[in-house]
């Protein structure tokens, strides 16, 4: 399998971080960045490879988080089992919302807006339904045992999320080489042409959305286990929808490494801005937003775009596997 080696190398390298430092500041930082990378990878499949920009990945993230939390607290289901069911539930929500949207032929901003609306509807439902704890939210009971998917140390959490990111990257690499992946890119580039060539565009997009949602839901499940508390605003709020699209677009849309790269850069940027400004409320975010604009201005195809430009300049040949929409 070509292209898997760099992924394995990166993951292995990252996996050694806990051996180098026991600083939980670093680990916690990386866990959050990897979580964003994971949800961003989900978004990337649909948005980057499929060209369907979602503003509502919170719908899947939140479903994963709520299903795993509610199953544990209300029905006494084992956390790992809840994790698996949570991912499945996210996939179902993805398939359903995708079926509704794609069958109606929604694309572009219309698709973006309907995903946003789905997430909002779920957020409102979660904030009034008794089973989700309504507005009070759901608190997962503290039970620091591996069987309960809770760990005393940050390290297992770190390795788990890293493994999930690694798996999502390999999955993306496999999809790139698959017929499904080729169809997906064809649909992105020219849906009518793809249809004319016999590609069932709706089905392809639906498949992408389902997998994309499952990945985002996995992120949600992880969030619930890591923080042990969710409410409607955390699970279905717009913050995660934005983070999910920010990471791949900054990192390099439609590339395997884009979301990871983007998440690390965006999170680092946020922390550096905090360091620079001390405790002044708001100032760090001013810098963060400003740098974001500058990054977009100078790297319109994301960081992966810069990297491939540099490689091209170096070798004077177009690199293989170029997936950016240039």
């Amino acid at each position: 399998m070509k292209g898997v080696a760099p992924i394995l190398a990166t993951v292995t390298l990252l996996a050694t971080v806990p051996l180098i430092t026991s600083s939980n500041v670093v680990l916690n930082f990386l866990v959050m960045a990897l979580l964003i990378a994971l949800v961003g990878q989900g978004w990337n499949l649909l948005g980057g490879y499929g060209g369907q920009y979602s503003f509502g990945h919170a719908a899947f993230f939140g479903t994963g988080a709520y299903v795993t939390a509610v199953l544990q607290m209300q029905y006494g289901v084992n956390a790992w089992m809840g994790f698996v069911i949570g991912i499945a539930a996210g996939a179902v929500v993805g398939a359903l919302t995708g079926a509704v949207s794609f069958r109606s032929g929604l694309k572009g901003s219309y698709f973006a807006l309907i995903t946003l609306a789905f997430a909002e509807v779920l957020r409102i439902i979660a904030s009034v339904t008794p089973i989700t704890g309504a507005g009070v939210g759901t608190l997962i009971k503290l039970d620091l045992r591996p069987e309960a998917f809770q760990f005393q140390s940050r390290v297992p959490f770190y390795w788990i999320i890293l493994a999930m990111v690694g798996i999502s990257m390999i999955l993306m690499r496999l999809i790139e080489d698959s017929r499904f992946g080729a169809y997906l890119v064809a649909v992105r580039e020219n849906e009518d042409a793809a249809r004319a060539l016999g590609v069932d565009a709706t089905r392809v997009k639906l498949g992408a959305m389902t997998i994309s949602a499952a990945i985002a839901a996995a992120g949600g499940c992880f969030y619930a286990q890591y923080f042990l508390f969710i409410d409607a605003g955390i699970a279905y709020g717009p913050w995660i929808s934005i983070e999910a699209l920010l990471a791949p677009i900054i990192g390099g849309i439609g590339t395997v490494f884009g979301p990871l790269l983007g998440a690390l850069v965006v999170k680092t940027l946020g922390e550096l801005a905090k360091l620079m400004t001390g405790g002044a409320p708001g100032l760090d975010l001013v810098i963060y937003g400003g740098v974001l604009i500058v990054v977009v201005a100078f790297a319109p195809r994301g960081i992966a775009g810069i990297v491939s430009d540099m490689r091209r300049r170096f070798y004077r040949t177009p690199p293989p596997g170029e997936n950016g929409r240039g």
Partner: peptide
């Protein structure tokens, strides 16, 4: 999208 998002944050 990103630029307007960045502007909003700023």
């Amino acid at each position: 999208l990103l630029v307007t998002l960045g502007l909003a944050v700023v």
